[in-house]
């Protein structure tokens, strides 16, 4: 989307969201797409703190799917195996209701928990391979700022001119520009 030629990455660390907000607003006005902007923060930001599109998450959907999957698996385990391997029970029913219920309940919860965590890791690019592909998980020289409680702005794919302008606008408000 940007002009041909080398693309540049500008990084800047800020103490306060307000400082970064001004830079982000200026960048968006100058025609830089929101998808080029990445913000790293030491704690979650509120939705309206930056004029960037809100990230989407399907964790809940996957959690529910995991619950269904886990429940079915557990039900199959408890009821199915009892049917597949009938043992002499002396007249008692082969598949008993309450035990199958208990196992299904626990399986449902386990499925839900596992799928939730997997989906969180997937969406965050924390699963192997994911982060590298999307470029998100890559380290930055300025990451220590995030560790120390500052915010980090990274804007990718800039032309040389755009990068220069962004650096200039950040110079006053940022702690460090890279």
């Amino acid at each position: 989307m940007t002009a041909a030629g080398e693309r540049h990455l500008v990084e800047a660390a800020y103490e306060r969201v307000e400082d970064m907000r001004a830079v982000v607003e200026a960048a968006l006005e100058s025609g830089i797409a929101a998808s080029q902007i990445e913000v790293r923060s030491p704690a979650p930001l509120e939705e309206d703190e930056l004029p960037l599109p809100k990230p989407k998450s399907r964790v809940l959907l996957f959690a529910l799917a995991g619950a269904v999957l886990g429940g079915l698996t557990a039900f199959g385990l408890a009821a199915g195996t009892a049917l597949a391997y009938p043992l002499p029970t002396g007249g008692m029913s082969i598949v008993a209701g309450p035990p199958v219920g208990v196992v299904t309940y626990e399986g449902t919860a386990l499925g839900l928990i596992l799928m939730t965590v997997l989906r969180v890791l997937w969406e965050g690019g924390l699963l192997p391979g994911r982060g590298i592909r999307s470029g998100r998980g890559r380290a930055s020289d300025l990451d220590h700022h995030v560790a120390n409680g500052r915010l980090l702005l990274r804007v990718h794919g800039l032309s040389e001119e755009q990068a220069g302008r962004l650096r200039d606008s950040s110079r006053t408000s940022a702690v460090e520009v890279g």
């Binding site: 043992l87 002499p88 029970t89 002396g90 007249g91 008692m92």
Partner: peptide, 16 residues
Amino acid sequence: CEPVCPVYATYRNPEG
């Protein structure tokens, strides 16, 4: 005693 055994080590056989 039968239903509480987790491994079916005790159970009721067909001859009572």
